[in-house]
Design a protein around this nucleic acid. Sequence first.
DNA 1: TATTGTTATACTCTATAACTATA
DNA 2: TATAGTTATAGAGTATAACAATA
Lengths: 157, 157
Amino acid sequence: MLKTMPDPSRLQPSAETPPDDATAVNALRSGVMRLSRRLKHQRVDESLSPTEMSVLGTLAQCGSATPGELARKEHVQPPSMTRIVALLEAKGLVRLEPHPEDRRQKVVSQTERAEAMLEESRRKRNAWLAELVGQLSDEEWDALRAAAPVLEKLAHL
Amino acid sequence: MLKTMPDPSRLQPSAETPPDDATAVNALRSGVMRLSRRLKHQRVDESLSPTEMSVLGTLAQCGSATPGELARKEHVQPPSMTRIVALLEAKGLVRLEPHPEDRRQKVVSQTERAEAMLEESRRKRNAWLAELVGQLSDEEWDALRAAAPVLEKLAHL
DNA sequence: TATTGTTATACTCTATAACTATA
DNA sequence: TATAGTTATAGAGTATAACAATA
Protein backbone atom coordinates (compact mmCIF):
# COMPACT_ATOMS: atom_id res chain seq x y z
CA MET A 1 0.00 0.00 0.00
CA LEU A 2 2.70 2.46 0.98
CA LYS A 3 5.39 3.38 -1.44
CA THR A 4 9.01 3.18 -0.47
CA MET A 5 10.70 4.45 -3.62
CA PRO A 6 10.10 8.11 -4.45
CA ASP A 7 10.69 7.39 -8.14
CA PRO A 8 9.75 10.52 -10.13
CA SER A 9 9.56 8.47 -13.34
CA ARG A 10 6.79 6.27 -12.04
CA LEU A 11 4.28 7.89 -14.35
CA GLN A 12 6.38 8.16 -17.48
CA PRO A 13 4.50 6.70 -20.44
CA SER A 14 7.01 3.92 -20.81
CA ALA A 15 6.23 0.30 -21.50
CA GLU A 16 6.90 -0.53 -17.87
CA THR A 17 4.16 1.77 -16.55
CA PRO A 18 1.97 -0.37 -14.33
CA PRO A 19 -1.64 -0.45 -15.50
CA ASP A 20 -2.74 0.79 -12.08
CA ASP A 21 -1.57 4.32 -12.83
CA ALA A 22 -3.27 4.45 -16.21
CA THR A 23 -6.45 3.15 -14.65
CA ALA A 24 -6.25 5.67 -11.85
CA VAL A 25 -5.72 8.49 -14.34
CA ASN A 26 -8.75 7.41 -16.31
CA ALA A 27 -10.91 7.12 -13.22
CA LEU A 28 -9.67 10.46 -11.95
CA ARG A 29 -10.44 12.33 -15.17
CA SER A 30 -13.79 10.69 -15.70
CA GLY A 31 -14.83 11.05 -12.06
CA VAL A 32 -13.79 14.68 -11.87
CA MET A 33 -15.66 15.57 -15.05
CA ARG A 34 -18.89 13.82 -14.09
CA LEU A 35 -18.84 15.11 -10.54
CA SER A 36 -18.20 18.64 -11.74
CA ARG A 37 -21.27 18.38 -13.95
CA ARG A 38 -23.39 17.36 -10.97
CA LEU A 39 -21.89 20.04 -8.77
CA LYS A 40 -22.89 22.66 -11.29
CA HIS A 41 -26.50 21.68 -10.68
CA GLN A 42 -26.17 21.47 -6.91
CA ARG A 43 -25.27 25.13 -6.55
CA VAL A 44 -26.56 26.33 -3.23
CA ASP A 45 -27.36 29.84 -4.28
CA GLU A 46 -29.16 29.47 -7.57
CA SER A 47 -27.69 32.72 -8.84
CA LEU A 48 -24.08 31.78 -8.19
CA SER A 49 -22.02 29.78 -10.68
CA PRO A 50 -19.39 27.29 -9.46
CA THR A 51 -16.59 29.62 -10.44
CA GLU A 52 -18.20 32.52 -8.63
CA MET A 53 -18.42 30.31 -5.55
CA SER A 54 -14.81 29.32 -6.00
CA VAL A 55 -13.72 32.96 -6.22
CA LEU A 56 -15.52 33.74 -2.98
CA GLY A 57 -13.81 30.77 -1.37
CA THR A 58 -10.45 32.00 -2.57
CA LEU A 59 -11.14 35.50 -1.25
CA ALA A 60 -12.15 34.03 2.08
CA GLN A 61 -8.70 32.47 2.28
CA CYS A 62 -6.60 35.25 0.78
CA GLY A 63 -8.49 38.21 2.16
CA SER A 64 -8.14 40.15 -1.06
CA ALA A 65 -6.63 39.82 -4.52
CA THR A 66 -6.41 41.59 -7.86
CA PRO A 67 -8.51 40.40 -10.81
CA GLY A 68 -5.37 39.11 -12.50
CA GLU A 69 -4.38 37.05 -9.47
CA LEU A 70 -7.88 35.62 -9.26
CA ALA A 71 -7.84 34.71 -12.95
CA ARG A 72 -4.59 32.82 -12.52
CA LYS A 73 -5.78 31.03 -9.39
CA GLU A 74 -9.07 29.97 -10.94
CA HIS A 75 -7.43 29.06 -14.25
CA VAL A 76 -9.65 31.43 -16.15
CA GLN A 77 -8.72 34.07 -18.70
CA PRO A 78 -8.66 37.74 -17.56
CA PRO A 79 -11.76 38.80 -19.51
CA SER A 80 -13.74 35.99 -17.90
CA MET A 81 -12.65 37.14 -14.46
CA THR A 82 -13.64 40.70 -15.29
CA ARG A 83 -17.15 39.46 -15.95
CA ILE A 84 -17.24 37.25 -12.84
CA VAL A 85 -16.05 40.04 -10.56
CA ALA A 86 -18.60 42.41 -12.07
CA LEU A 87 -21.40 39.92 -11.41
CA LEU A 88 -20.24 39.38 -7.83
CA GLU A 89 -20.06 43.12 -7.28
CA ALA A 90 -23.58 43.57 -8.66
CA LYS A 91 -24.76 40.99 -6.11
CA GLY A 92 -23.05 42.86 -3.31
CA LEU A 93 -20.68 40.00 -2.57
CA VAL A 94 -17.37 41.66 -3.37
CA ARG A 95 -15.97 45.16 -3.12
CA LEU A 96 -13.60 46.76 -5.63
CA GLU A 97 -11.05 49.30 -4.54
CA PRO A 98 -8.18 51.01 -6.33
CA HIS A 99 -4.77 49.44 -5.89
CA PRO A 100 -2.70 51.57 -3.51
CA GLU A 101 0.52 51.32 -5.54
CA ASP A 102 -0.46 50.59 -9.12
CA ARG A 103 -3.29 52.56 -10.64
CA ARG A 104 -3.82 49.97 -13.38
CA GLN A 105 -4.80 47.30 -10.89
CA LYS A 106 -7.78 46.89 -8.59
CA VAL A 107 -8.20 45.14 -5.29
CA VAL A 108 -11.10 42.73 -4.86
CA SER A 109 -12.28 41.73 -1.41
CA GLN A 110 -15.36 39.98 -0.05
CA THR A 111 -18.16 41.76 1.77
CA GLU A 112 -19.77 40.71 5.05
CA ARG A 113 -22.72 39.51 3.04
CA ALA A 114 -20.44 37.10 1.17
CA GLU A 115 -19.07 35.79 4.43
CA ALA A 116 -22.56 35.10 5.76
CA MET A 117 -23.54 33.47 2.49
CA LEU A 118 -20.52 31.17 2.55
CA GLU A 119 -21.41 30.07 6.05
CA GLU A 120 -24.97 29.38 4.97
CA SER A 121 -23.97 27.45 1.90
CA ARG A 122 -21.48 25.34 3.78
CA ARG A 123 -24.38 23.91 5.75
CA LYS A 124 -26.42 23.25 2.62
CA ARG A 125 -23.52 21.65 0.80
CA ASN A 126 -22.89 19.35 3.71
CA ALA A 127 -26.49 18.25 3.67
CA TRP A 128 -26.34 17.49 -0.03
CA LEU A 129 -23.03 15.71 0.12
CA ALA A 130 -24.11 13.79 3.19
CA GLU A 131 -26.81 12.16 1.11
CA LEU A 132 -24.25 10.92 -1.36
CA VAL A 133 -21.46 10.18 1.07
CA GLY A 134 -23.86 8.36 3.34
CA GLN A 135 -23.85 5.66 0.69
CA LEU A 136 -20.09 5.33 0.86
CA SER A 137 -18.20 3.18 3.29
CA ASP A 138 -16.05 4.84 5.92
CA GLU A 139 -12.97 3.74 4.03
CA GLU A 140 -14.22 5.39 0.86
CA TRP A 141 -14.98 8.66 2.62
CA ASP A 142 -11.58 8.56 4.27
CA ALA A 143 -9.98 8.16 0.85
CA LEU A 144 -11.96 11.10 -0.47
CA ARG A 145 -11.15 13.34 2.46
CA ALA A 146 -7.47 12.54 2.18
CA ALA A 147 -7.52 13.32 -1.54
CA ALA A 148 -9.45 16.59 -1.35
CA PRO A 149 -6.49 18.83 -0.51
CA VAL A 150 -4.38 17.03 -3.10
CA LEU A 151 -6.99 17.76 -5.75
CA GLU A 152 -6.78 21.41 -4.82
CA LYS A 153 -3.01 21.37 -4.95
CA LEU A 154 -3.17 19.68 -8.35
CA ALA A 155 -5.49 22.34 -9.67
CA HIS A 156 -3.01 24.98 -8.56
CA LEU A 157 0.11 23.46 -10.12
CA MET B 1 -6.74 7.90 10.91
CA LEU B 2 -9.00 4.91 10.61
CA LYS B 3 -12.59 5.13 11.62
CA THR B 4 -14.10 2.62 13.96
CA MET B 5 -17.70 3.84 14.14
CA PRO B 6 -19.70 3.54 10.94
CA ASP B 7 -21.90 6.44 12.03
CA PRO B 8 -24.11 7.45 9.08
CA SER B 9 -24.82 10.81 10.67
CA ARG B 10 -21.22 11.88 10.62
CA LEU B 11 -21.92 14.42 7.91
CA GLN B 12 -25.22 15.75 9.09
CA PRO B 13 -25.13 19.54 9.20
CA SER B 14 -25.56 19.54 12.94
CA ALA B 15 -23.70 21.66 15.42
CA GLU B 16 -21.49 18.71 16.31
CA THR B 17 -20.17 18.28 12.77
CA PRO B 18 -16.39 18.34 13.04
CA PRO B 19 -14.83 21.12 10.96
CA ASP B 20 -12.74 18.53 9.13
CA ASP B 21 -15.71 17.35 7.10
CA ALA B 22 -16.79 20.84 6.11
CA THR B 23 -13.25 21.66 5.10
CA ALA B 24 -12.97 18.47 3.10
CA VAL B 25 -16.24 19.22 1.32
CA ASN B 26 -15.04 22.68 0.41
CA ALA B 27 -11.70 21.42 -0.85
CA LEU B 28 -13.40 18.65 -2.77
CA ARG B 29 -15.82 20.95 -4.57
CA SER B 30 -13.26 23.62 -5.32
CA GLY B 31 -10.61 21.14 -6.41
CA VAL B 32 -12.98 19.22 -8.64
CA MET B 33 -14.22 22.37 -10.33
CA ARG B 34 -10.79 23.83 -10.98
CA LEU B 35 -9.30 20.57 -12.12
CA SER B 36 -12.21 19.97 -14.47
CA ARG B 37 -11.55 23.36 -16.03
CA ARG B 38 -7.92 22.45 -16.66
CA LEU B 39 -8.85 19.01 -17.96
CA LYS B 40 -11.08 20.62 -20.54
CA HIS B 41 -8.01 22.32 -21.98
CA GLN B 42 -5.76 19.28 -21.72
CA ARG B 43 -7.86 17.26 -24.09
CA VAL B 44 -5.63 14.90 -25.97
CA ASP B 45 -7.54 14.97 -29.21
CA GLU B 46 -8.24 18.63 -29.80
CA SER B 47 -11.56 17.81 -31.42
CA LEU B 48 -12.89 15.74 -28.53
CA SER B 49 -14.70 17.32 -25.58
CA PRO B 50 -14.34 15.85 -22.06
CA THR B 51 -17.82 14.37 -22.22
CA GLU B 52 -17.14 12.79 -25.59
CA MET B 53 -14.02 11.23 -24.08
CA SER B 54 -16.03 10.06 -21.11
CA VAL B 55 -18.62 8.44 -23.36
CA LEU B 56 -15.91 6.55 -25.21
CA GLY B 57 -14.50 5.41 -21.90
CA THR B 58 -17.90 4.20 -20.80
CA LEU B 59 -18.41 2.33 -24.06
CA ALA B 60 -15.01 0.72 -23.65
CA GLN B 61 -16.25 -0.68 -20.35
CA CYS B 62 -19.82 -1.52 -21.26
CA GLY B 63 -19.25 -2.66 -24.82
CA SER B 64 -22.40 -0.96 -26.03
CA ALA B 65 -25.32 1.08 -24.73
CA THR B 66 -28.36 3.00 -25.87
CA PRO B 67 -28.30 6.81 -26.02
CA GLY B 68 -30.64 6.94 -23.04
CA GLU B 69 -28.37 4.75 -20.94
CA LEU B 70 -25.38 6.89 -21.88
CA ALA B 71 -27.25 10.08 -20.97
CA ARG B 72 -28.05 8.70 -17.52
CA LYS B 73 -24.51 7.47 -16.93
CA GLU B 74 -22.93 10.76 -17.97
CA HIS B 75 -25.52 12.82 -16.11
CA VAL B 76 -26.50 14.64 -19.26
CA GLN B 77 -29.95 15.24 -20.73
CA PRO B 78 -31.06 13.07 -23.69
CA PRO B 79 -30.88 15.86 -26.29
CA SER B 80 -27.29 16.57 -25.30
CA MET B 81 -26.41 12.92 -25.73
CA THR B 82 -28.04 12.90 -29.14
CA ARG B 83 -25.64 15.64 -30.20
CA ILE B 84 -22.60 13.98 -28.61
CA VAL B 85 -23.32 10.64 -30.25
CA ALA B 86 -23.85 12.35 -33.60
CA LEU B 87 -20.49 14.11 -33.30
CA LEU B 88 -18.74 10.89 -32.34
CA GLU B 89 -20.33 9.09 -35.26
CA ALA B 90 -19.25 11.84 -37.65
CA LYS B 91 -15.70 11.33 -36.40
CA GLY B 92 -15.95 7.60 -37.02
CA LEU B 93 -15.55 6.76 -33.33
CA VAL B 94 -18.90 5.12 -32.66
CA ARG B 95 -21.32 3.00 -34.65
CA LEU B 96 -25.11 3.22 -34.41
CA GLU B 97 -27.26 0.17 -34.98
CA PRO B 98 -30.97 -0.49 -34.57
CA HIS B 99 -32.03 -2.06 -31.30
CA PRO B 100 -32.87 -5.75 -31.86
CA GLU B 101 -36.01 -5.73 -29.69
CA ASP B 102 -37.26 -2.14 -29.53
CA ARG B 103 -37.42 -0.16 -32.74
CA ARG B 104 -37.50 3.13 -30.84
CA GLN B 105 -34.06 2.60 -29.38
CA LYS B 106 -30.59 2.49 -30.91
CA VAL B 107 -27.43 0.70 -29.91
CA VAL B 108 -24.20 2.68 -29.71
CA SER B 109 -20.85 0.91 -29.78
CA GLN B 110 -17.26 2.03 -30.27
CA THR B 111 -15.30 1.44 -33.44
CA GLU B 112 -11.77 0.04 -33.71
CA ARG B 113 -10.61 3.57 -34.42
CA ALA B 114 -11.97 4.67 -31.05
CA GLU B 115 -10.17 1.84 -29.33
CA ALA B 116 -6.87 2.84 -30.93
CA MET B 117 -7.47 6.47 -30.05
CA LEU B 118 -8.16 5.66 -26.42
CA GLU B 119 -4.90 3.74 -26.25
CA GLU B 120 -3.05 6.66 -27.81
CA SER B 121 -4.61 9.21 -25.52
CA ARG B 122 -3.91 7.16 -22.42
CA ARG B 123 -0.21 7.58 -23.15
CA LYS B 124 -0.56 11.31 -23.72
CA ARG B 125 -2.67 11.81 -20.59
CA ASN B 126 -0.12 9.99 -18.53
CA ALA B 127 2.61 12.23 -19.86
CA TRP B 128 0.62 15.35 -18.98
CA LEU B 129 -0.40 14.12 -15.56
CA ALA B 130 3.13 12.94 -14.86
CA GLU B 131 4.25 16.54 -15.12
CA LEU B 132 1.78 17.57 -12.45
CA VAL B 133 1.96 14.48 -10.30
CA GLY B 134 5.74 14.56 -10.42
CA GLN B 135 5.43 17.57 -8.14
CA LEU B 136 3.39 15.60 -5.62
CA SER B 137 4.80 13.44 -2.90
CA ASP B 138 4.23 9.70 -3.04
CA GLU B 139 1.77 10.00 -0.21
CA GLU B 140 -0.24 12.58 -2.13
CA TRP B 141 -0.34 10.47 -5.27
CA ASP B 142 -1.38 7.46 -3.22
CA ALA B 143 -4.22 9.49 -1.74
CA LEU B 144 -5.30 10.54 -5.20
CA ARG B 145 -5.15 7.05 -6.63
CA ALA B 146 -7.15 5.68 -3.74
CA ALA B 147 -9.78 8.37 -4.21
CA ALA B 148 -10.15 8.07 -7.98
CA PRO B 149 -12.57 5.12 -7.96
CA VAL B 150 -14.53 6.73 -5.14
CA LEU B 151 -14.93 9.89 -7.19
CA GLU B 152 -16.33 7.79 -10.00
CA LYS B 153 -18.69 6.03 -7.64
CA LEU B 154 -19.82 9.36 -6.24
CA ALA B 155 -20.56 10.66 -9.72
CA HIS B 156 -22.72 7.62 -10.34
CA LEU B 157 -24.80 7.82 -7.16
C1' DT C 1 7.58 48.79 -24.67
C1' DA C 2 5.25 45.73 -21.36
C1' DT C 3 1.45 44.93 -18.36
C1' DT C 4 -3.39 45.28 -16.24
C1' DG C 5 -7.77 45.28 -17.09
C1' DT C 6 -11.84 46.00 -20.24
C1' DT C 7 -14.95 45.75 -24.36
C1' DA C 8 -16.74 43.36 -28.24
C1' DT C 9 -17.57 39.15 -30.22
C1' DA C 10 -17.95 34.23 -31.06
C1' DC C 11 -17.80 29.51 -29.72
C1' DT C 12 -18.81 25.23 -27.01
C1' DC C 13 -21.61 22.72 -24.18
C1' DT C 14 -25.84 21.89 -22.09
C1' DA C 15 -30.75 22.60 -21.07
C1' DT C 16 -35.84 23.00 -21.95
C1' DA C 17 -39.82 22.57 -24.91
C1' DA C 18 -42.09 20.67 -28.60
C1' DC C 19 -42.32 16.92 -31.94
C1' DT C 20 -42.11 11.98 -34.09
C1' DA C 21 -42.19 7.19 -33.85
C1' DT C 22 -42.77 3.06 -31.41
C1' DA C 23 -44.38 0.32 -27.27
C1' DT D 1 -50.93 6.62 -22.66
C1' DA D 2 -46.00 6.21 -21.86
C1' DT D 3 -41.30 5.99 -23.55
C1' DA D 4 -36.90 6.69 -26.74
C1' DG D 5 -34.97 9.69 -29.40
C1' DT D 6 -34.76 14.01 -32.18
C1' DT D 7 -35.26 18.94 -33.62
C1' DA D 8 -35.36 23.72 -32.58
C1' DT D 9 -34.10 27.17 -29.62
C1' DA D 10 -32.04 29.56 -25.76
C1' DG D 11 -28.83 30.33 -22.11
C1' DA D 12 -24.55 30.02 -19.34
C1' DG D 13 -19.76 30.18 -19.26
C1' DT D 14 -15.57 30.85 -21.35
C1' DA D 15 -12.23 32.19 -24.98
C1' DT D 16 -9.80 35.23 -28.36
C1' DA D 17 -8.84 39.71 -30.38
C1' DA D 18 -8.59 44.45 -30.13
C1' DC D 19 -8.34 48.37 -27.14
C1' DA D 20 -7.34 51.77 -23.10
C1' DA D 21 -4.72 53.21 -19.30
C1' DT D 22 -0.74 52.93 -16.62
C1' DA D 23 4.00 51.28 -15.53
